[in-house]
Structures are given as C-alpha cells and as structure tokens.
C-alpha cells in the first residue's frame, strides 16, 4: 500500500512498527564517574542508536522513495534531535532523571563530571518536564519524531537538492501526511477544538527547543572530540562532521 493512500491511523500504525527496540549500553559505567568514561559511554550509546535510527528512517512510509541525497541530508540534519526526543520519551516517567538506556540512568548532578554538559542536561530535563506536563501520548511522540526527520532540512539552500524537485515535492507531501496523523492523534483525546489547536501548537513549539539543545549538544561533542577527551566511532564521527 502506498503511503499516500494510508489513513492517519494506518500511517501511525506503520510509524509505531518502525520504532527501534530498547537499547542497552551492556557495560557498567564505573563510579566515580570521570569525564572520559561518561563521554565514552554516551557516545557509544549514540553510535548504537544511530544504526537503529537509520533502520527506523527506512521504515517510515515514503522515506526510501526520496533520492539518496535527500535521505542522507535529512538524517545528517536531524540525528541528534531524534536521539534527544527519544531520550525525553524514555525519561518522561522519571522526574529528574535522564534515561539514556535501560542500564544508563543519570541525574543532573552526575553530569557535573563532564565540563559543559550540565547545562545541556538541564535543558533536556526541562523539555522532558514540559512533555510530562502535556501528558505526551505515544502516538503523538512517534509523529513528532517522524516530523523532525522530515522537517529537518526543508529550508536547505543546497543547489543539488533545490533542483531535485521530485524529492522536494515528495518530502512535503510526506510531512503533510504525518502532520495530519498528529492532528488525528490529538483529535482522539476528546478535547475542544480550541484546546486541540493549543495542544498542537505546544507540541510543535517544543521541537524548536529540541533543535536548540541539539545544536548545543553538537558543539559540545565536537569540542570534546577536538580536545581528545573522547574518541568518536566512525558513523558518529561522520554524522557529527557532516551534520554540523
């Protein structure tokens, strides 16, 4: 079935099935934490998650119909936003904690060992709190994550991409479909029309906060790598270098 003929409910069902599995660091982060150990654990997890993210993107209906150039640009533009939204979703029922994985749960004080990371932890915790206050639903979460992927590079100035009108059109249609799905997910909640609009606005506004934190995160990770505090694995290095 082509994605354009899917109902919002069917589209959400497909996006739900694309969700990555729960991930594990699979090793103990030894205490007391050190800057190098914590950064190594966080980047190791991020690298694992990147493989799952690419697999996830390929399962979003219509994504693989975009040109390879578009697929690469979308992923390199949004990967840290997607990782951060996933982190917020995992942490939503754990006030004050960031659930990086089932076996790596950190509070803000534990971030003190890494120079400059507490301010990022605080922003992540604040956005997570906002999602908790809004009682973010799983269907809304998966739509928001797909929207990050599809919207991440919509204002690209790359001539190569501007000329690829076919992919550009497909991308816009896909984004419209996921937006419809999000509107549908909100409409199921029995809210007044006015409250539905307000909820949609509140959820979408949080995406700009996530964009802001991911920019800080990219800068922080680049600095850590450039100062040789952490070694970054191949895929993560490629995404960091090309995405920033």
């Amino acid at each position: 079935v082509h994605h354009s003929s899917l109902t919002p409910e069917q589209l959400i069902s497909c996006i739900m099935h694309a969700e990555p599995p729960e991930i594990y660091l699979m090793e103990d982060l030894k205490r007391p934490f050190t800057e190098a150990r914590m950064m190594m654990s966080l980047t190791k997890l991020a690298n694992k998650e990147l493989f799952f993210m690419i697999s996830w993107a390929k399962k979003i209906p219509g994504f693989v119909e975009l040109s390879l150039t578009y697929q690469m640009h979308q992923l390199e533009s949004c990967w840290l936003d997607v990782l951060m939204l996933g982190l917020m979703w995992r942490s939503i029922d754990h006030p004050g904690k960031l659930i990086f994985s089932a076996d790596l749960k950190l509070n803000r004080e534990e971030g003190n060992c890494v120079k400059g990371i507490v301010i990022i932890f605080d922003k992540l915790l604040a956005a997570t709190t906002r999602f908790r206050e809004l009682n973010l639903q799983r269907e809304e979460y998966v739509c928001l994550k797909a929207m990050i992927l599809l919207n991440s590079n919509i204002c690209s100035t790359s001539p190569e991409m501007a000329e690829d009108l076919e992919s550009r059109g497909k991308l816009q249609l896909l984004l419209d479909s996921v937006t419809d799905a999000l509107v549908w997910a909100i409409s199921k909640q029995g809210l007044s029309f006015q409250l539905q609009s307000a909820r949609l606005a509140h959820l979408l506004m949080l995406l700009s906060d996530i964009r802001h934190v991911s920019g800080k995160g990219m800068k922080h990770l680049s600095d850590m790598k450039n100062n040789n505090i952490v070694q970054v694995s191949d895929l993560l290095l490629e995404m960091l270098t090309n995405g920033s």
Partner: peptide, 24 residues
C-alpha cells in the same frame, strides 16, 4: 561523488537492503 565520499557509512547503510543494524 563528493557527497557520497563524505557520507561513506551513511550512504552504504541507506543503499544496502540489509538492515543497518545487521550491518553494524
């Protein structure tokens, strides 16, 4: 070509029909 060169791993993972997770 330069884009593909810059994105060697991502390009391979997207192009390959095998799941990226299995290729990891």
């Amino acid at each position: 070509t330069s884009l593909k060169e810059k994105h060697k791993i991502l390009h391979r993972l997207l192009q390959n029909s095998t799941s990226p997770v299995d290729l990891a």
